[in-house]
């Protein structure tokens, strides 16, 4: 049984275990908060990778799922009593809403060229942003609103941040393994085939639309869950969750970390979140750091042109090459011996 588990799985489990222990060594508030951000955006970026990396679908409105999740949980806990039952209800609402929106966006545009999905999601996200600003009685407009999360029993309440940290970490690890299982399943293989050559998959007798819609729904649901975690961790929801920069963050994390690798987006999330943190400190040094979107935009453009595989993708490539060379060497020496 144990032998069938991949070697990389043990590495991931070891890293996850270290992350569990991390807050006991470094428990400053800002650090815990930053790590929680890394986990939530890691989940968000993984959901983006499912589309961009595994299926070749570009979404420019991924923020709408994130925002839907955040608003669902916020509104549920704000209007209803703050109990665990309602927390659960809010999460369920977020997942269902995310799935429904992703389904309709998918069936409308996924039969067309990839441009259409990008345009439609961009427009839909801006529609949700307007909705959040205008539907003031529920969303409090651009002011946003704070809400309370249910109180934890007994001594746990004093370590609330730690509990949220663990919850986000466990969610991320579970989602990571779940999605990896999905991408290694026959369904995942078909998705990769669609990315590589749509016409060929179609001529092999597969209907492409259902696969694309399924993955867009899965991605929407996961992204919505990331929004839920984000809202829970800051206990506040504002219209910024629908902003284009949320989508851009996911894009950057996925591309810098490595498209189509799942672990890449998590690493990307770590890099971007920590870069955000330290760059905003630098704004006293030079004004250009206040306009960090420019820096990120330029890094992003350069990454798309020169570094399309990302960090993890490039590493995997190198490893594969080395393995290949080793095998070649072995082959040669055995050939020599044979002759």
């Amino acid at each position: 049984m144990i032998k069938t588990i991949q070697k990389s799985t043990w590495i991931y489990i070891a890293v996850a275990f270290m992350l569990v222990l991390l807050p006991f060594f470094k428990d400053e508030r800002w650090f815990l908060f930053l790590m929680i951000q890394v986990f939530t955006f890691g989940i968000f970026a993984m959901s983006y990778d499912l589309l961009l990396g595994y299926t070749g679908i570009v979404s420019f409105g991924h923020a709408m799922f994130f925002g839907l999740g955040a608003y669902s949980i916020g509104i549920t806990l704000n209007f209803l009593e703050s109990t665990f039952m309602n927390l659960f209800l809010g999460i369920l609402l977020a997942l269902v809403l995310g799935g429904i929106v992703a389904f309709f966006a998918g069936i409308l545009t996924l039969r067309l060229k990839s441009h259409y999905y990008a345009m439609l999601t961009l427009a839909l996200a801006s529609l949700f942003l307007v909705l959040a600003e205008k539907w003031r009685s529920v969303t409090r407009g651009s002011d946003g609103f704070t809400f309370r999360i249910p109180e934890l029993p007994g001594p746990l309440q004093d370590h609330r941040n730690l509990v949220v940290y663990m919850f986000c970490l466990v969610s991320m690890v579970l989602i990571f393994f779940g999605l990896r299982r999905l991408t290694e399943s026959p369904l995942g293989k078909i998705l990769v085939a669609i990315r590589e050559n749509e016409g060929r998959v179609e001529s092999l007798g597969f209907r492409i639309m259902p696969y694309k819609v399924i993955i867009s729904v899965v991605s929407g649901v996961v992204a919505s869950f990331a929004g839920v975690l984000y809202a829970i961790s800051i206990r506040f929801v504002g219209t910024n969750v629908f902003g284009i920069d949320v989508t851009l963050d996911a894009l950057l994390m996925t591309i810098i970390g490595g498209v189509g690798t799942l672990v890449g987006p998590i690493i990307g999330a770590g890099i971007i979140e920590f870069a955000h943190h330290y760059l905003s400190d630098l704004s006293d040094v030079h004004w250009i750091f206040e306009r960090w979107i420019i820096l990120f935009g330029i890094v992003y453009i350069l990454a798309v042109i020169f570094f399309p595989a990302g960090i993890v993708g490039t590493l995997w490539h190198k490893l594969a090459k080395r393995k290949h060379k080793k095998q070649e060497m072995k082959q040669k020496t055995s050939d020599k011996l044979a002759s």
């Binding site: 961009l52 070749g56 990839s114 990008a118 851009l248 894009l251 798309v304 042109i305």
Partner: peptide, 12 residues
Amino acid sequence: IQQILITLGFML
């Protein structure tokens, strides 16, 4: 896909 990605970056 790269075209779509890069032009959005340039927009920002």
